[in-house]
Simulated assay, not measured.
Amino acid sequence: MSDIIFKDSNGTVLEDGDSVTLTKDLKVKGTSETLKRGTLVKNIRLTSRPGEVECNTKKVKGLVLKTEFLKKA
């Protein structure tokens, strides 16, 4: 997995355990929750799919987010 480089919306390289903030409001599929812009998400996990990271928020567990909507905190 070390050959895949994950970058946020600004081109900053992301690593396991980083904290990120959302750059836009995101509706979570399958729930009535909307994650607001500026929400801090801690301790992300890189996946085998380029452009996607796994994380947990206070309201939603096991969430997969696209890196194009994230900014490294």
Rank of each mutant, 00 (worst) to 15 (best):
M1K: 10
M1Y: 08
M1S: 10
I5E: 10
I5G: 00
I5C: 02
F6T: 03
F6Y: 14
K7H: 08
K7C: 06
K7R: 14
D8R: 06
D8E: 05
S9T: 11
N10Y: 07
N10H: 11
N10C: 02
G11P: 00
G11V: 03
G11M: 03
T12G: 00
T12M: 07
T12Y: 03
V13F: 00
L14M: 13
L14K: 01
E15D: 08
D16S: 04
G17A: 05
G17M: 01
G17V: 06
G17R: 02
D18W: 05
D18G: 07
V20W: 04
T21R: 14
T21V: 15
L22C: 12
T23F: 04
T23Q: 08
T23W: 00
K24W: 00
K24S: 13
K24M: 11
D25L: 11
D25V: 02
D25S: 13
V28N: 02
K29E: 12
K29G: 08
K29N: 10
G30A: 05
G30R: 09
T31C: 06
T31M: 09
S32K: 15
S32V: 02
T34G: 02
T34R: 14
T34S: 12
L35I: 13
L35K: 06
K36Q: 15
K36V: 10
K36C: 02
R37L: 10
G38P: 00
T39W: 00
T39C: 01
T39I: 05
L40H: 09
L40W: 03
L40M: 08
L40K: 15
L40F: 02
V41F: 04
V41I: 15
K42V: 04
N43G: 05
N43R: 11
N43V: 00
N43S: 14
L46W: 06
T47L: 08
T47H: 04
T47D: 02
T47F: 07
S48C: 04
S48G: 13
R49V: 15
R49E: 12
P50H: 08
P50Y: 06
P50S: 10
E52I: 13
E52Q: 14
V53K: 04
V53F: 09
V53C: 03
E54H: 04
E54M: 10
E54C: 04
C55V: 06
N56T: 13
N56V: 04
N56W: 09
T57L: 10
K58D: 15
K58V: 07
K58T: 12
K59L: 14
V60M: 06
V60G: 10
K61S: 12
G62A: 08
L63Y: 07
V64R: 14
K66C: 05
K66E: 12
T67Y: 09
E68A: 11
E68F: 12
E68L: 07
L70P: 01
L70Y: 10
K71A: 11
K72R: 14
K72H: 00
K72Q: 05
K72E: 01
A73D: 09
A73Q: 11
A73K: 13
